[in-house]
């Protein structure tokens, strides 16, 4: 799950308040930096802001930093490359599951993964993917 997706998820968990409320609570004049992280596909958000958000949501700041590096764009590039080359990939999901297979399609919200072994198509929601890697050579 990218940082943007994760922050939206945390916001929903905390009652779904708007970003103005969060901005005021952490001492920002306006919510644009938060909106930017939530909406952009690239890695955005400076360390100071992440520290404030981590305190606000009571989560480890390292977690936010780690997710920042795993932006939607980064996953898109990986998925696109994997699909074009037909390589086997491993997707590690937030709930601890790992799925292995070949990506047959991907789009805004999900990835079509042809599972290794039974060839079954599993539709994996992008926001469920925490980490990804190539299974080649393993």
């Amino acid at each position: 799950m990218s940082l943007g997706d994760y922050l939206r998820y945390l916001r929903a968990l905390h009652g779904g308040m708007d970003t103005w409320t969060i901005a005021r609570a952490i001492g920002l004049e306006h919510p644009y930096p938060i909106n930017e992280i939530e909406q952009r596909y690239r890695a955005v958000g400076d360390d100071d802001l992440l520290a404030k958000l981590a305190t606000y949501y009571d989560v480890p700041v390292e977690d936010l930093r780690w997710r920042r590096e795993r932006s939607r764009k980064a996953f898109t590039i990986f998925a696109d490359e994997a699909m074009r080359t037909g390589q086997t990939v491993r997707l590690h999901l937030r709930m601890g599951d790992t799925l292995e297979g070949r990506i047959t399609w991907w789009d805004l919200g999900a990835v079509g993964l042809q599972r290794t072994g039974d060839g079954e198509i599993i539709v994996v929601q992008r926001h469920a993917v925490d980490e990804w890697e190539s299974a080649a050579g393993n």
């Binding site: 696109d80 789009d107 079509g112």
Partner: peptide, 14 residues
């Protein structure tokens, strides 16, 4: 690379 970040037709079609 065609990176359809705004496309959700694959899941829709499925």
């Amino acid at each position: 690379a065609h990176l359809p970040e705004a496309v959700d037709e694959f899941e829709f079609n499925y």
